[in-house]
Simulated scan of single mutants.
Amino acid sequence: MTDPTRRDAVDPTGSSDSTALDGLDARDRRDRRERRVVWAVVVWIPLAIVAVTTLVQLLWIPRMPDEIAVHFDATGRPDRWTTPGRAVLGSAMISLSLVLALAIATFGGARAMRRTEGRPVRYLARVRPTAVFAPATTVAVSGIMLALYGLQLEGVEAPAWSVPVAIVGGLLLGALVGWIAWRVLPAPDRSASDAPAATPALDLAPGERAVWTETSSSPWLVAFLIGLALAVTAVPLVLAPEAWWLWVLLFVFVLLLATTAWIRVTVDRNGLVVRTLLGFRLSRVPLDRVISAADVDVLPAEFGGWGFRFDVHGRRGIIIRSGEAIEVERADAPPLVVTVADARTGAALLNALAAAKR
């Protein structure tokens, strides 16, 4: 028979363990709740907006002319037409593509982010800079499409001035929705206690030299999109050869941009250096300007996507992928964040070399 008095003899340390477990459970519940909110803001609400917009356009088809304007020149006059069915289908495809692209930008790399002990992860707050664009962009595009198609109902020829008014109105409506989403979603909390602690420096002997280098590449989807952009810029070169110089410049620009999808990060006596695939230097932090370096976890959504970015805290970022990154606190500039594998070793060596330089 179990002695009921034994409940009072439990080791008092068990209480703290139970409290810690309760804290973890509460954090997990909060994370699940916040992920549901992100899904609602980034996916379900935009999809609902697209569905309602498409339904309205389908109901309008009997009132649309046989040929409906879908493109306008700089003066607001139509220069391209199509059938109402194709116009509605094209509108839906554009809207769904935007929802998909923004969902990828928001959720991209979420699983690669590891939870760091002592630094709770607020997922909703971290993806807030990117998440607000989903409802804002969807509302803006849907509003513009509805306005442009609505102006042509019953075969009415809309005045040229109404087109820019419809576009500006849709953009303002989208900006208002984005502002509301920004105010509703929790702001990232980056207090002093939440700032990344400097990675312990490597133990180098006096006069010992060391070099660390690693490469970082974009996810396959980003690489695919860059390749698609190169292909798209090459098509007009064939179809419109009279403007070949413009398309060549655009192609070269996209090609140079593509080289930044693969970078090499080096830490040595020169400090931290980031170069492109072709060797062009993207950034350099000399040792005498390094205050500290830390290995952190990064989501592209924190910085609004991939590439050269900055976040709401003022950090500058070279964001190639999600996951490990080196964050360098600089003496004369905002912190620099560079995503790269084995970031802990790189940060540890940078701290050691910077300390030896002082």
Rank of each mutant, 00 (worst) to 15 (best):
A105P: 05
T339C: 05
L55I: 11
L204W: 00
A205D: 09
R32Y: 11
L257K: 03
L256Y: 08
T259P: 00
T138M: 09
I319S: 06
I45C: 08
V254A: 06
I319K: 02
A197T: 14
P135T: 06
G14V: 12
L237Q: 10
I167K: 02
R32I: 10
N351M: 04
G304Y: 06
P164S: 01
I61D: 09
S217L: 11
A243W: 09
G279N: 02
L225P: 07
A26G: 09
V43G: 05
T106A: 06
W244E: 08
P196V: 06
V298L: 01
R330I: 08
A201C: 07
T215Q: 14
L173T: 07
I291G: 10
F251N: 12
A294T: 01
A352N: 02
A105N: 12
P12A: 03
W245T: 13
V141R: 07
L282Y: 02
M145G: 12
R190L: 14
L256R: 08
I144Y: 04
F310A: 13
A331P: 13
P120L: 12
A92C: 07
G178S: 01
I180A: 11
R344C: 11
H313T: 14
V50F: 02
V252L: 03
G174I: 05
V163Q: 02
E208I: 03
F251K: 07
L100G: 14
W44V: 13
D3A: 00
A101Q: 10
P200L: 08
L172K: 09
P286S: 00
Q57T: 09
A343W: 06
L146D: 03
T54P: 04
L176W: 08
I61S: 10
P286I: 00
M93D: 11
D189E: 14
A134K: 04
L250T: 09
L249R: 06
G307N: 00
D311W: 02
S15Y: 14
A231D: 11
L171Y: 08
Q152I: 09
G109T: 05
D311S: 02
E208Y: 04
Q57A: 14
V290P: 01
G76Q: 01
A192C: 12
S191F: 05
R330D: 11
V296C: 03
T116H: 10
A205Q: 10
V41Q: 02
L172W: 10
A197H: 15
V211N: 13
R111I: 08
F280T: 06
I226C: 14
M1Q: 12
L350G: 01
L250F: 06
V50C: 06
A343N: 04
I326A: 05
A136L: 03
P334Q: 15
F303S: 05
R80D: 15
L102W: 07
L176E: 05
R321P: 14
L249D: 13
G170Q: 00
V99W: 04
D288K: 00
G227R: 06
A261S: 15
V285M: 02
T260F: 03
H313C: 09
